[in-house]
Write a protein that binds this DNA or RNA. Structure first.
Lengths: 336, 336
DNA sequence: CGTCCGGATTGAATTGTTTCAATCCGTTCG
DNA sequence: CGAACGGATTGAAACAATTCAATCCGGACG
């Protein structure tokens, strides 16, 4: 494959001039430039990004590590981040940790080797232990959908406590007195915060923590939701409402209940979380807590860019907290 | 940031030995190895992927360029490809072209600069003109969800003509005599093949091409489906069934009809395409043509690996055609 | 005792680009 | 006419790894 030297020889100029034609065309005489461009065309020259990177010390790629690309919520985050990155001339490398700390660690190692200009990450665990190495190496990183645990990084999150309050508050004010919480991996902060919000809403209505029946789940997908739905059906007495930690779980629960002939919302009301596109199109359109996912992705990318481009140490880490919004649809209503 | 030289100095060995410790540990005496590993640990050394790449000539990353990551069908393809790639120790860089030829060209250029070891691509246009440069530079590439237009590359596709036949054959045998086809961008092969299959199914039942009413759409998402649904409502006479080029469109159409009080399937039957996870959870569970998306992604990645690892030119380009499968659910039934 | 062998280690060459001090050359000015 | 200037161009250094021929060293063997 042709390199810059071949181009230089072909055009009868030095390598420096070829580099200038590519990077600072205005600094080269028009006819020299034309000659070089012709040589580039003729040889089919494509500049090597790795050589540039080697010299520059870091790549022009930003990494995004999410829990699950099968969840449209994360796809929206990716979309927001991608747009912001492209505006800055950067590429985005999107990867899934699948909520596994090992995979997360593996990917973070990969990113460090790639010398990515920064990492947007939704950590798979609460402690963020995998990120310590990043802080040590001064690799810019921004926590996404997660509050900053230390002052070592920026973070963009949505107020999950408030989201849980909105969801369960809505159920309580519709008259429900016993609510199931289909949760997810216990080490996820979001899951815990949403529960806390749910408990707060119950407390506000004078109900104790026993009014919230937790149905744990180790994953956050539709299949796990179906399992949770089956378990819900077995509960005696059965709660009259379910709050799910995300919409995928809610869709799975809905399918389960539907299949068992339990009517939604007459017999059981359901509230999901994320308000993914498919929530509105569900068998019974899903009441859900909407998160500004695209905005979150964009803001995270912008914070990362600010940190990465910061030369003089003027960057101050910030935590942005966005507000969720309840979208009421058919799946929630007063109990019998 | 510490480099291999710093490690060598710290451990009192040469750079070659450090390199050996990392890449061929068995070729180094245990105590030397221990010393080097200690130095690596102490200095927090992380090897530079760009320097490796520069020397090796190409990266250990495979690119995947799909039309839209918002479509779960492509997410499944990505999952399949990612798994196969990781088994081979490669990373995957997933990008969206958004069906735009300009974006596609931009990304392909980026991939060439990155010297990716190969590209999996669902071209945004029928001609695949953007790929010519790849063929010229001998960059391995595999067409995904698309038949090979030339003998220059491998391809993995699903028999879309047959998929269209399955869908419309099902509708026809349920008694429908007029079917709307909500299509997508006309330059996509899949869209045309599915139409062809639809026409073939109609012909088999003695119906002419006028029995297929095309409702064109320039995108393939839920919003476009809603638009298409609105247009369908305005048709006189209104077809009794709709075949949608994918499930996102079908979900959108379903929402539109539902909102207008048109009953599905009593008034209008709907058949989608892809059988995404959300099809089964829809307001009316969607009949759909299932594609083996994960398998397709995996096979594509495996073909690419075979091509990329081929040294002696023994690789022969192949086209794999997978078979789709009809999944009948509530959204399709006999007309009034 | 010298030679040979083989495994461990070395260190220089190589990769493709960017950058920058040095050089070249044509103009202008004193 | 020489010097100073300034824009265009040059060419070598630097980036961080891998690779490989050369070297080193200890032991075995003649």
């Amino acid at each position: 494959m042709a390199g810059i030297k071949d181009v230089a020889r072909q055009a009868g100029v030095s390598v420096g001039t070829v580099s200038n034609v590519i990077n600072r065309p205005e600094a080269v005489l028009p006819d020299t430039r034309a000659r070089v461009l012709a040589a580039i065309e003729e040889l089919g020259y494509v500049r090597s990004e790795s050589a540039r990177q080697l010299r520059a010390g870091r790549s022009r790629i930003m990494a995004l590590l999410v829990l699950d690309m099968g969840n449209p919520f994360f796809v929206d985050i990716a979309r927001g981040a991608e747009r912001a990155a492209r505006e800055a001339g950067l590429g985005v490398m999107v990867c899934n940790s699948g909520q596994s700390q090992e995979e997360e660690a593996e990917y973070l190692g990969l990113f460090a080797e790639q010398r990515v200009c920064g990492v947007l990450v939704t950590p798979a665990d609460a402690t963020g232990g995998n990120l310590e190495a990043f802080a040590r190496h001064r690799i810019p990183h921004v926590l996404v959908d997660r509050v900053a645990s230390s002052k070592d990084s920026c973070a963009v999150s949505v107020d999950d406590v408030r989201g849980g309050m909105l969801a369960v508050g809505h159920l309580v004010s519709a008259g429900h007195r016993s609510v199931a919480y289909v949760s997810g991996p216990g080490d996820l902060h979001q899951i815990r915060d949403r529960r806390e919000g749910a408990l707060a809403a119950l407390a506000e209505a004078g109900l104790g923590p026993e009014a919230l029946v937790e149905i744990p789940s180790d994953r956050l997908d539709v299949a796990a939701g179906r399992d949770a739905g089956a378990r819900l059906l077995g509960l005696v007495p059965r709660p009259t409402a379910v709050f799910c930690a995300n919409d995928l779980l809610a869709l799975g629960v809905l399918q389960s209940l539907y299949a068992a002939g339990v009517r939604v919302p007459q017999d059981v009301a359901i509230v999901g979380y994320d308000d993914i596109e498919f929530a509105a199109a569900a068998a019974v359109p899903l009441t859900s807590v909407r998160q500004p996912a695209v905005v979150m992705g964009r803001m995270a990318a912008e914070l990362l860019l600010e940190e990465a481009e910061d030369e003089d140490g003027s960057h101050r880490h910030r935590s942005v907290v966005l507000q969720p919004e309840l979208v009421v649809r058919a799946s929630s209503a007063a109990p019998r």
